[in-house]
Design a binder for these strands. Sequence first.
RNA 1: GCCACUGUAGCUCAGUAGGUAGAGCAGCUGACUUGUAAUCAGCAGGUCGGGGGAUCAAUACCCUCCAGUGGCUCCA
Length: 668
Amino acid sequence: MSDRKGLRIKKGEKFSSKISGRNIIAASFEGKLYDLDTTAPSDGIFFPVNVDSQEGLTILRHSAAHLLAHAVTTLYPSALPNAGPPTDDGFYYDIHMDSISSDDLHKIEEKMHELAEKSISIRREEFSRDDLLKMFQGNRYKTDKILENVPPGGSSSVYKQGDFVDFCTGPHVPDTSYLKNVKLLSISSTTYHGLKDEDKMVRIYGTAFPDEKSLRNYLKMREEAMKRDHRIIGQEMDLFVFNSERAPGFPLYTPDGTVIRNELISFMRAKNSEYGWEEVSTPHLFRDSMWKQSGHYAKYRDSMYLFQMEDGTGYAIKPMNCPGHITIFQREMHSFRDLPVKYCEPGTVYRYEKSGEVGGLTRPRMFTIDDGHAFLSQDQLVGEIRKMLRMIRETFDTIFGNADLSFDLSVMDTTALDNYLITYSCNSCGHKIEFRKSSADNSFQCPNCGSSDLKPDLSTWDSATNALREALEEEGINFRTLEGEAAFYGPKIDVHLKDALGRSWQMSTIQVDFNFPLNFELLYITSGGEKKHVVMLHRAIYGSYERIMAILLENYAGNLPTWLTPLQVYITSVSDRYNDYAMKVRDMIQKAGVRVTLDLSKETISKKIKLIRPRRPSYIVIIGEKEETEGTVSVRNRKGAQKTLGTKAFTEMIMEEIRERKNTQADF
RNA sequence: GCCACUGUAGCUCAGUAGGUAGAGCAGCUGACUUGUAAUCAGCAGGUCGGGGGAUCAAUACCCUCCAGUGGCUCCA
């Protein structure tokens, strides 16, 4: 909403008559947006929409998308525009045309600038459905939209700029001169409606800003983000390797990468133990019969690594850790007194992601989940979820320092019950069965009496969903509720983290699971002596070690908190005359448990610093004559600040930084 | 899996309108004894992603496979 104050307007007056200045590009009137050139539909108060506001930017970019289509259709008369919406930070337009190159992209952008310079006015016009269909005949993408959105006998609007016309509800900027600060960013391709067999579309991405400076800032940010790509930083820091011939999609961790991984694992180990999670260790493969029972085989077979032994027995490499934990849980009968049972494991899973879906550490074919499975009674649910929420908060606050987290509660779509595993009760015999209609090949009948008069009973789902909600509320957490986002086997909470560049990443998840307790008969004995299904929770805090490592690298641009940094102290000497002292310093720091490297190579200091920088050591220590005589070290921190410190004082400082897992360094 | 683009030394990248490749950095050897983002010289390093085809001749042209990147779809 605009924070400007409202302006009074009478019915039939043009919004443009009430405002002045190019910053205002539209009017917000009774919750709807209007072109400045249109008139108020009734007396009232309207709010001018500033181009800098979120609404204003969206309008600007939507208009820029039109300009893009205008330029493309001018240069390529046979091109058929489909749709061009604004996005969070720009816009794109899908156009049916022959594929183009980045050279063509420049040409198109030049044409856009040319059209913007001409200040072509952008006019809204209203037409009947029939006229619209006539106007856009020859472009089925547009006529589809007209048929879909305009009721027979109805009318809708088009926007005209020069000889370009687009079917659109608007609003738009008054003329093309508002669109001088546009930039086309990339080309990709898609299909009409994203459907496999539909027409190919060229998708052109771009962005637009009200002024040149903010455009330049955005482009700089974008460049910075590209430089922060964990694949690039990972290579500079020598953390992991992908060998596209031997193991496409599988990360191999170098010694330094393994250091980071191990630090993350041991931190999580400590957190798990603090919160009562017992670590277990499970095999990487199971007989395929197990995966058939769990339902993974039916649903995910094409993305599982399957193989057969000589004798014909089938195996699958695990795509999830749950079965292992379940198998351990099942080794003995559980009393209500045993619950909760909570198993955790840094569990490595393998999923055959499709070729086009693999990429870096964010979408590998092998990843290690900081997995955990809790087996609970219904009344323990809220308490355990609350603990998990606290664990999540503490973990990310440590790693990122006051992490910017957001929480989503994903619940079922109550209008599509067939998609979920739910309880039905038989209206004729009262028998209860668990069923997921959409995935069942067998008939939907009561196994007891054969009746098909079955009534859904949502009490289990409701109580689980309420438990998740209650836990969030009691922890004082703001959250969104997402209808229809629940898994087929239960509701869940997802946690997102906003990184230093403002990007949102999905991290933790807490999922209630009704499927496994049923499929695997996971039972406990209640105080009343009867057998009851446990409630099962899946949870991961980091998500996966691969993902958290990628996010850490990008968030910190590789300059990780010292406790996570592979090379915590890099020492080198000005000349080999000081090597003995340098070795003494190295030994002292090393003895304190700090990861330190002493570089005795006979290069210049400048060169050694130049070469070590991409590895991103936490501290660079230089040793020369002065340091040797004074018993000090010359230290350079992450910010590039230098200070001479007593060797002992420096060692203690860094020890404290590591011990407390600080995510910033002390100021020099 | 689909679409587009890309694939030359460990890394970053040149190059050949078809005549089997070149630089910088890294590596190795030597000289320089050095104060916070490149000291100098030399050496070594590539079956130009794999396979096939047309050509006297392919890294370059065509086909095909593989992989990477950006999207689409998917992500238990």
